[in-house]
Computed example of a mutant assay.
Amino acid sequence: MRVGIQVPSFSYPGGPEQIAPTFARIAQDADQGGLDSFWVMDHFFQIMGVGAAEEPMLEGYAALAYAAALTERITLGTMVTGTVYRHPGILIKTVTTIDVLSGGRAWLGIGAAWNEEEARGLGIPFPPLAERFERLEEALLIARRMWAGDESPFEGVHHRLERPLNSPPALRRPHPPILIGGGGEQKTLRFVAEYADACNLFDAPELPHKLDVLREHCERAGRDYADVEKTVLSMAPAGLSAEQAVETCGRLAEQGVDHVIFSCGPDAPGAVGTLAEAAPQIAKIVPAGR
C-alpha cells in the first residue's frame, strides 16, 4: 500500500512570512520520510470544513512547483483541479512542466469543480453542472491527446485547439497519471473507468458501494478494474499516531484501497513525521485483490 499527505491549510503560526519555510519543511520531511505522494488542494479561497474563506490559500501549481524544487522522489499533485479553472491545453502544459522539472513526478488530479464562491469571487466562469462535466470529459480527451504527442486539431463543444503541441513532452511514461476526484456514480466514476489511471474517494461509509459502482463501470468499458489505482482521502485527526495511521490503512486495504492520502490541517508539520514513522509498516500492507 502507498501513503501520501495532503496539505489543505496554510494557517501556520507566525503569519504569511512563515508559510514558505513551514510548507518547505513539510514537503521535505514527507519526501525524506518515505511517503509516496504529496498533494495540495486546487482552491483559491479556503474551503468550508477547513477554515474561513479569508484564511491563507496558495495557488496549487505554484505551490507544487516550489515543492518539486525541494524534493527528490515524492510524487506531486493537486487534489483536485476544477476543470473550469484553467483552459485544458494550459492545464496539461502546466502539469507537463512540473513533470519535467521534477524528473517525472507529476500527477494530473482533476474533477468537475464545485466551489462556486471562489469562482464568482475571482471572475471565473462557472457553468451549470452538466456543462462542467462536458468540459471535464473534453479536458480528459485533450490530456490523452497531448500526452500521446497527437498535434491534430481538437474540435469539441466547448474547446477548440488548432494544434495541441506539448513540447517538451512529459517524462513520466506513458504519461503523468490521471486521477479523477469525486464519487458521482453516473459520470465521475464512469469517466474514471474510461479515461483515468486512478480515482479518489473519501474515507466514508459509502466507500464500498462507490468501489462496486466503479467496478461495474470498468466492466462496461472493457477495463480491468485492477488497473485503476484506488486512492482515498482520509481526514487525519489532530495528534494522529503511527498506530492510528497503520490501522486506517489496514482497514481501507481490506476494502481494496491501494493508496491512502491523509489530509492534515495545521497539524501537518507534526503529522508528516508520524506518517513517516508509519510508512514502513504501511508499505507491507497488501490491498485486497492484489
Rank of each mutant, 00 (worst) to 15 (best):
F262L: 03
M48T: 08
A196D: 07
L122N: 00
T22M: 10
V286I: 15
E277S: 12
R73H: 15
N200T: 03
V80S: 01
A65S: 15
F45P: 00
D258L: 07
T94Y: 03
S263E: 06
A106F: 06
S102K: 02
I178R: 04
F154Q: 09
I5K: 00
I5R: 04
E131G: 05
A20E: 10
H159C: 09
T22P: 05
M41K: 00
L233G: 12
P128G: 13
A283M: 02
A204S: 15
R215A: 15
G77Y: 05
M146E: 02
V84M: 12
L122W: 07
A62D: 02
A204F: 06
L35R: 07
L76F: 07
L275S: 01
H209M: 05
A204V: 08
I90Y: 07
L233F: 08
T81R: 02
G111C: 05
L211S: 04
G89M: 06
P56Y: 07
L91W: 09
I261T: 11
G15C: 09
I74C: 10
F44Y: 13
R73W: 11
I74D: 01
R160L: 09
T188E: 02
Q28G: 09
A204G: 04
S241C: 02
R173T: 15
L201S: 00
L129K: 12
F23K: 10
E151C: 06
F10G: 09
L201K: 05
S263A: 13
I261V: 11
V213P: 06
A62H: 09
L101F: 12
E151P: 06
P237S: 03
I180H: 01
F23A: 14
H259L: 13
G184H: 01
D212M: 04
W147F: 11
G103A: 09
Y195M: 07
I26F: 07
L275W: 01
F191D: 00
E151A: 11
M41L: 10
G49L: 06
T83Q: 08
T83D: 06
L64N: 10
H259V: 07
A226H: 15
E138Q: 08
A238Y: 12
A271P: 03
N115S: 09
P287S: 04
V3D: 06
L214T: 00
A276Q: 00
K93L: 10
E185G: 03
A67V: 08
P125G: 04
W39Q: 00
A130R: 14
M146W: 08
A30D: 04
D224P: 06
G273Q: 05
Q281K: 13
A27V: 12
F191W: 00
L136T: 08
M57H: 09
M235S: 14
P287G: 03
M41C: 03
D258R: 07
P205M: 05
E55L: 13
